[in-house]
């Protein structure tokens, strides 16, 4: 039975309290280092902050999930192990992991704490998911954002663990945990450093005709007319030219956000246990708005009422939204 838990982003202690107060069933967060995939300046938690935050969340009946979902490069494994030990000591409810070495360490050292398989592990088949369940005791898999609802329903029948899917926020195009685009242009790795299109490498250049180009590490990622709002230069949402596309096109995807609010009933029916809202890098007001809206929607659906989804478009990137792969195979 799907419990339709709402898993909400907590980039800072303040955002965590906001998400808890807005009705999150669980929040997910990380330490201020490479051990998690949102290792951005000004984000994340010190151990002391996490201790206070766990107390706050638990007091309100909200679970805290600690993301340890990057891949330690050889020679630096201890940082991930220490993060797991600290999280265990502070009483987190689950670890979200991707690396097999990290999963193995936690399964052996902290067997009483739940393991969730991060989207960064890219487990997109029943066999891959069962590999992690049988070897590390994984209790929940966060599915890659590349599956249709019928495919999710089929996977659910063939695996022994819970399913969590993303329902709202950044719409990653590449298979997570298998993308080195940022490292290719910037020297900072998504998998090893928890960095994606880092702000420190971003530039906007204004041209004589009033147009603006967005750049990452000196590479032009997109360009905008004088009247257009310039977007953030994420490599997989950039505009490029190809031999058949001399005028430039979004080779991978347009700047667009995932919004599955309309598919919630179907996802619940397909057996999805938990819904993840992306956005640890987003503001408190964003977190409050999105969590409240989805809390109301999920409660309506569970009570057999028609869900009234507030208009969330204003909060989405580039003011455009998609149901991505979830709706149709044509997305591929």
């Amino acid at each position: 039975m799907s419990l339709a838990e709402l898993i909400c982003p907590a980039g800072t202690p303040a955002a965590l309290r906001t998400a808890v107060d807005a009705g999150a069933d669980a929040v997910y967060c990380g330490f201020q280092d490479a051990t998690n995939a949102r290792n951005f300046p000004g984000l994340n938690f010190t151990p002391e902050e996490l201790a206070a935050s766990v107390a706050y969340a638990h007091d309100k009946g909200t679970k805290v999930l600690l993301a340890l979902n990057t891949y330690p490069p050889a020679g630096k494994v201890d940082l991930w192990r220490q993060a797991a030990d600290t999280g265990a000591r502070l009483g987190v409810d689950a670890f979200i992991v991707a690396d097999m070495g990290v999963a193995d360490y936690i399964a052996r050292t902290h067997p009483g704490i739940r393991l969730h398989l991060s989207v960064q592990a890219a487990a997109s088949s029943p066999e891959a998911i069962r590999y992690y369940c049988e070897n590390f005791g994984v209790k929940r898999v966060v599915l890659p954002r590349i599956l249709t609802i019928p495919e999710i329903r089929q996977i659910k029948r063939e695996i022994p663990c819970e399913i969590e899917t993303f329902i709202f926020g950044n719409h990653g195009l590449m298979v997570e945990g298998r993308c080195s685009l940022t490292n290719y242009l910037t020297g900072q790795s998504t998998n090893m450093d928890g960095v994606c299109s880092p702000a420190s490498e971003v530039d906007y250049a204004r041209h004589a005709d009033g147009s603006m180009s967005s750049q990452l590490a000196g590479f032009t990622i997109d360009c905008f007319g004088a009247e257009e709002k310039a977007g953030y230069p994420t490599i997989c949402k950039g505009r490029y030219t190809a031999p058949h596309r001399p005028d430039g096109y979004y080779a991978f995807e347009e700047p667009i956000s995932l919004n599955l609010s309309r598919l919630l009933p179907e996802l619940i029916e397909a057996g999805v246990h938990a819904f993840k809202i992306e956005g640890r890098q987003r503001s408190k007001s964003y977190v409050r708005g999105v969590v409240r809206a989805f809390r109301a929607a999920v409660d309506d659906i569970k009570a057999g009422r028609e869900a009234k989804i507030a208009d969330l478009i204003a909060l989405t990137e580039g003011q455009k939204q998609t149901q991505g792969a979830f709706e149709t195979k044509k997305w591929r």
Partner: peptide, 27 residues
């Protein structure tokens, strides 16, 4: 892919570059 690891079980195999063997613990 981990699906291949599951299917192979403990029989001998090589690990490809897409399987993210980043460190000594995973190896």
């Amino acid at each position: 892919n981990a699906a291949g690891l599951y299917a192979r079980g403990r029989r001998a195999h090589r690990i490809g570059p897409f399987l993210n063997a980043y460190n000594e613990a995973t190896i």
